[in-house]
């Protein structure tokens, strides 16, 4: 018997301490303020939040630390920060500032031992490995640098390696599905999930409520992440939770 709930995770893109994508809540004062948005999502029943920092300036580390401190002071659900971690010191700053987990993507591809080091230093539960992959000629090819550079690795093999190195969770984005709003990569999710002993977060393709149900029932994902359907309030989280409950999916 297992009552562990499937998680719904809004993702926020951050640049220079502000959220990038427009956000369409009715009564929000400042749609660019990550802490205010985080609080809103938390109140709506989001199970967790992911902040993806895409700042490219020298101020990056300082800005991200401030952001994490502000968010941590305002919400009481877990949150992950990614986009700024390429060495142990980066993770230390974020976790000390109050982040619950850090996610690594390109840095883990360029130097896989980073994942071992993070897991040893902080524990596996703090380490999310994010992977972008695209289906090409029947194989899921891993990309780095926001999906711009192919790395010559196959998704399933790479994800398993990351698990062995100490990743606590895998956050997989299907580049074929991302932005299409046509549903998650359920078949590949199910395949990947069957190979993993750690939780799997589905990302890429959310457009309708039944896409989430499918990611959980067909894709066997432990969590589903989405951005625009939540930012633009196309799918309000409380409505989604009610729908999933009716579909027999265990949610909080």
């Amino acid at each position: 018997m297992n009552n562990l709930a499937k998680r719904i995770i809004p993702c926020l893109d951050i640049r220079n301490g502000r959220t990038v994508k427009g956000v369409n809540f009715v009564d929000i004062r400042d749609a660019g303020d990550p802490a205010e948005l985080a609080q809103r999502y938390s109140q709506q029943g989001a199970d967790e939040l992911v902040f993806l920092d895409i700042t490219a300036s020298h101020e990056k580390r300082k800005l991200l630390k401030q952001l994490v401190e502000t968010v941590a002071a305002r919400i009481n659900i877990p949150f992950t920060v990614g986009g700024g971690v390429s060495e142990l010191a980066d993770a230390d700053v974020l976790l000390s500032a109050g982040a619950d987990k850090v996610s690594v993507n390109s840095a883990a591809i360029l130097r896989p031992a980073l994942v071992d080091e993070l897991a040893q230093q902080f524990g596996s539960q703090f380490v999310v490995v994010a992977i972008d992959a695209r289906l090409e000629n029947g194989q899921w090819q891993v990309y780095r640098n926001g999906g711009r550079i192919p790395v010559g690795r196959e998704l399933f093999d790479y994800a398993r390696e990351m698990q062995e190195r100490g990743a606590g969770e895998i956050l997989w984005t299907s580049m074929n599905h991302d932005g299409t709003q046509g549903g998650f990569a359920n078949e590949a999710l199910a395949q990947l999930n069957s190979l993993l002993k750690i939780p799997l977060i589905a990302s890429g393709g959310a457009g309708k409520m039944d896409h989430f149900a499918d990611a959980f029932r067909k894709g066997n994902a432990d969590a589903a992440l989405a951005a625009s359907v939540f930012h633009y309030n196309t799918i309000p989280i409380p409505v989604l939770k009610t729908y999933l409950k009716e579909q027999g999916v265990i949610v909080r």
Partner: peptide
């Protein structure tokens, strides 16, 4: 899957620590 990570529900809750909670709170 290990760790047991995420939201799970409480049963057979006892006072005083878990007083005033809806049934099966996550």
């Amino acid at each position: 899957k290990i760790p047991h990570m995420g939201w799970n529900s409480l049963a057979e809750t006892r006072k005083p620590l878990l007083a005033d909670l809806p049934e099966h709170s996550f």
